[in-house]
Write a protein that binds this DNA or RNA. Structure first.
Lengths: 212, 212
DNA sequence: CGAAGATACGGAGGCTTCCTCCGTTTAACA
DNA sequence: TGTTAAACGGAGGAAGCCTCCGTATCTTCG
């Protein structure tokens, strides 16, 4: 495609190469040393000056975002697939469980989630939106089917999920997280009609009208 | 040998005074600047050399623990009082809500909780035990009354609570946390007998026998 | 009271990391 | 091949962590 209006030079080859190197090094270093690892170490491993690293990724978070974009995308695509499942509640549950597995497997996933959940920088936008949408689509389906209460937002759920995974470096955390998520999903189901216990709404002003 | 072992010298007055000063300064600095605040700043505010600070509190965590011991105790005493409430489920719910308020008010509370939850250092022992016991007593009562499922441990619940509070520096976090905790408590209630939906046990091997 | 010894003080200094700034190098384009 | 915009890289200042040890101060006991 010939772009005449575009006066942009072709990006320099060394720039592209270095960017890639830094990404790869960062992946390795972060996976090994956690999200606090030294950026200078990353630069050294990439065989690149610290200045170059900072030029490509002005902040630690920018680098994180770039490194874990793929993970976030995978998780979010999984939601897409699960939308075809019959039971919407089960689908949501399964997504959450897969999320736990992700965190367990990909060592940097937690950092990616932290970025997505901790709104603050501009840079988290991508992850946040992507994951919120993923959860939202599953949640909406369950709500639409009348199986789940409607007063929890996708953001809330994302935060809950993150919270459950937060202790991801303790011995039994995975089992714990799965248990907690199950409890949480149970709590999300609409209370059986007729015999509602109206538990929480007794002490809280309902954030949303409950079943009219 | 005459073991008048307990013939310890009286602790030096300046040492006691300085310890107190450091604690006070730390409280102020941590509440203002968060748990990452500079220890040198603490020392300066206390009018004390950095060496003195480190002698009294060899690690950042030790200092934290000392600063927030009181807060943890308060929270834990609250549980004691709530044990007298009629409705055990409601008591638990209230405790959790108070916890959220604590975190909202005392800015360093999160750090104290983090220490309590993240088992790891030796130093967290006190907080962890204290809070686990607090939650445990409320939880047990609810379980004994047949109102709550028995497959969640106090540690699990503590972690869940912590997780819900984790995003404690976002705009609406407090409302979110309260909502999430409500959902969670709902999920903790035993499913209404006779008409059980057996939601989670369908996909998970039951951690505990459910009422069959 | 006054000396002796134990204890605590404080901050210099070595180390690590962060991040910026700018002189030098190099790839793209004509 | 020359021009020039873009990228490189690392020196260096700022800040924080933590240790070490000479000096100051407190407690004890004769």
């Amino acid at each position: 495609m010939d772009d005449h209006a575009d006066h942009t030079r072709k990006p320099r080859a060394d720039a592209v190469r270095n960017r890639e190197r830094v990404l790869e090094a960062a992946k390795a270093v972060f996976n090994a040393g956690g999200p606090e690892a030294s950026l200078e170490a990353v630069a050294k491993r990439a065989g690149v000056g610290i200045g170059t690293l900072y030029r490509h990724f002005p902040t630690r978070e920018a680098l994180f975002e770039a490194v874990y974009r793929r993970e976030v995308e995978q998780l979010s695509e999984l939601a897409e697939q699960l939308k075809n499942a019959k039971d919407p509640v089960e689908a949501l549950r399964r997504w959450l469980r897969s999320g736990v597995e992700f965190v367990a497997t990909k060592k940097g996933m937690m950092a990616a989630l932290a970025l997505a959940v901790q709104s603050g920088s501009e840079l988290h936008a991508f992850s946040f939106e992507r994951l919120t949408k993923a959860i939202g689509s599953l949640l909406d389906r369950a709500v639409a089917a009348g199986e789940m209460r409607a007063d929890i937002s996708p953001e809330d759920l994302l935060r809950a999920f993150f919270g459950m995974c937060y202790v991801h470096d303790q011995p039994g955390w995975q089992a714990t997280a799965l248990r907690l998520l199950d409890v949480f999903v149970d709590g999300l189901r609409v209370q059986p009609p007729g015999k509602a216990k109206a538990s929480s709404s007794k002490t809280t002003k309902p954030a949303t009208k409950r079943k009219r």
